[in-house]
Design a protein around this nucleic acid. Structure first.
Lengths: 217, 217
DNA sequence: GTCTATAAACAGATAGAC
DNA sequence: GTCTATCTGTTTATAGAC
């Protein structure tokens, strides 16, 4: 599992990580290639050499982020669903949503990735396509399957798809509006205690939605 | 109620509306003042004359959007809450959330404003401060009051604040990821029928959350 | 108030030395 | 592979004619 990187690979990775950070903080268009090279302690020419140009670096960032998300969150999605009872499915879904909450809101190392993804989601283009196909869609399908099993409804139905979007949407929003939400909650920092309380609440909300769809209309 | 605008005022408003549209579509940094002047059929110099520069135009856009949101959505927030029963409070909240959904997702004229606000929300700065103080915070406080009345809980408690953020967060998310969500739902367009079904679901989810907080922990 | 010309700074891409 | 110098186009801001 050791991976001794060559000098060139170090430069590549450092450029990508610096770019993800700056793209996430300021947005793709607001960041110059000079800023990225400076943060990575590389020269401007290296971006053209390694990635062909700024758009190529953007794609490389997307690939890097997707690989990271899948390796971090992927394990939560492997449990086979054969013969799962509704209660099991709910428990499995709550566990996965909890992992997603921690990745999305708490894990400090992932915050640059998350901010990068959020910004790209607002910009229809090649990167948002990659994010959808390689991450959002598989995650959503998995949650639909579990939501369907937990409520006894068709996992492919519109109602289930919309409900699942609401489940993940609430989590997204706490990241989008994080600074404003923290102010409203009188939180100076979002430390481990705060994120723990928050994640528990969000998981509970998923349970409330499952309960509502399990019962009536 | 008529408001005959002078020539200069027409230029001002046209510039602001063009800027909101372009800022929303591409982001503040990706739009040049030339693009804005072209779309407004004005000359570049007029931006400096009327707003002092690009940042001044951005502020003017924020003011314009906030005024529009408040006049469109404000009426839903006026009903006095004295002696409201829990059922009344829930009905009132569902009505207001429904109005918010329609503004945020369905109303075609408001889509430029919504996209502008979403992008600014991701950028901590002067504009996001204005949006928070003049729109998000008042709306959130109103919903917390109603949620507290509907569930019998303290409207100022952390749990209520978080629950309300989840309620509005789900709505936000359907706008943030709209193109990807439409694809997942196999919707070619988000027309009146689709938005109607969607808004009804989102209102229902709010009811589910109220029910959960009304009952147990 | 409107419009044009221009300045000064900055962008991304590239050629070539090492 | 790395780094520097430079090219070409574009940015915002401004000065001044009308």
């Amino acid at each position: 599992m050791e991976k001794p990187l060559s000098g060139a690979e170090v430069t590549r990775v450092t450029l990508v990580e610096s770019a993800i950070r700056l793209f996430g903080e300021r947005g793709y268009d607001a960041v110059s290639t000079r800023d990225i090279a400076d943060l990575a302690a590389a020269n401007i020419g290296s971006i053209a050499y390694h990635f062909g140009g700024k758009p190529g670096l953007r794609r490389a960032c997307a690939d890097y982020v997707i690989a990271n998300v899948r390796s971090t969150l992927g394990t939560s999605f492997l449990k086979p669903t054969d013969n799962m009872s509704p209660a099991d499915a709910l428990a499995c879904m709550e566990h996965s949503i909890g992992a997603f909450c921690h990745f999305w809101l708490a894990n400090r190392e992932s915050q640059h990735f998350v901010h990068f993804m959020l910004r790209e989601l607002l910009d229809p283009g090649e990167v948002s396509e990659l994010l959808y196909a390689n991450w959002m869609k598989p995650m959503h399908m998995r949650f639909c399957l579990l939501f369907g099993l937990a409520t006894g409804r068709d996992p492919c139905s519109e109602e289930v798809k919309i409900a699942v979007f609401s489940c993940v949407g609430q989590v997204f929003h706490f990241r989008v509006a994080k600074p404003l939400i923290m102010r409203r909650l009188d939180w100076d920092v979002m430390g481990p205690e705060e994120t723990e309380r928050l994640c528990k609440r969000l998981v509970m909300h998923v349970g409330a939605l499952v309960a509502a769809y399990k019962g009536g209309a």
